[in-house]
Amino acid sequence: MAITRDEVAHLARLSRIALTDAELDHLAPQLDQIITAVAQVQEVAAEGIPPTSHATGLVNVYRDDEPRPCLTPADALSQAPAVEQQRFRVPRILAEE
């Protein structure tokens, strides 16, 4: 087995997805099958082959640092789930003691 149900549950927690038990039962064997298939890349003799992260070969693209128009506060906040005092209102970020 390439990946266990517990490992999938752990990865889901790290990915901030509150999977249900039923979903874990469903997704874990599928992920096991997928990982077994993609593990084929390990057959390739790739000693000394440099990795490619993207195909253009471009590095460090800069643009001129010039002021330009940007979103207004009203536009930036227009799609927020909750707004307070012209700010994004978010749930508490610290655990209760």
Partner: peptide, 22 residues
């Protein structure tokens, strides 16, 4: 965040996020 992503993403997206995290 976790409840939103659970409710907001479908199966294939969840599969791929978890696969990528792995």
């Amino acid at each position: 965040m976790s409840l939103t992503r659970e409710a907001g993403f479908g199966d294939e997206v969840k599969r791929r996020i978890i696969l990528g995290a792995y």
